[in-house]
Amino acid sequence: MSAAAIESAHNVPNADSSDGEVLLDIRDLFCERDDRILFQHLNFKLRAGEVLQVHGSNGSGKTTLLRIICGLNDSYQGAIYWQGTEVVEHLEDFYSALLYIGHRVGVSKVLTPVENLRWSCSLQRQRDDAAIYSALATVDLRGFEESQCFTLSAGQQQRVSLARLLLSDARLWILDEPFATLDASGVEQLEGLLSKHANSGGAVLVTTHHQLRVPKLQRLSLG
């Protein structure tokens, strides 16, 4: 892929739908990997109430973009603003408002779903066991609460991470291929969650090859 193949902000049609508060503001982002420019002059804004789907071919830098925004990858140039202040200066505020689910979903295989969720909740917002059990029931894991996660299928482990979406009150969700291992009902449920989150003033940044059916969907293409 050549550097010329890069499109930028022009394909983000959010200039006119400017009703929500700007949560995330990406300015002039540039990233190069192995002498290959993944993206340059990348500008976009993510407003409250929006779901932004990043799409592009394999290897076009979708995951890299998400990891850069999360601060897991710092090989970039440009600036990332969260609610008007640069992220690197107020990392704690940003991380309090961020929920990230990557390719590796962050579910320990030897622990049970309940133990996993207790820990991940304790890092951000404390939730009691009743809330955790009801979240697991919502994602169709009733009866698996006390099974160690290595006995669960990949899709079920993905559902454990979806339960974190239910338990968190983070404003920004950054989800990397959350649909990959989900079945049809899981996909529908996650789409419902995304819409609900956007409607209640949150924002979602998601990579997927799946056709998302959510209102106020924005698209950003890479590569």
Binding site: Y95, Y100, G102, R104, G106, L123
Partner: peptide
């Protein structure tokens, strides 16, 4: 190692603490 492989380490790094 296990935390790195299952992604828990990323969650730890992204905690506000």
């Amino acid at each position: 190692r296990a935390d790195f492989e299952d992604g828990s380490l990323e969650q730890l790094l992204l905690s506000p603490h």
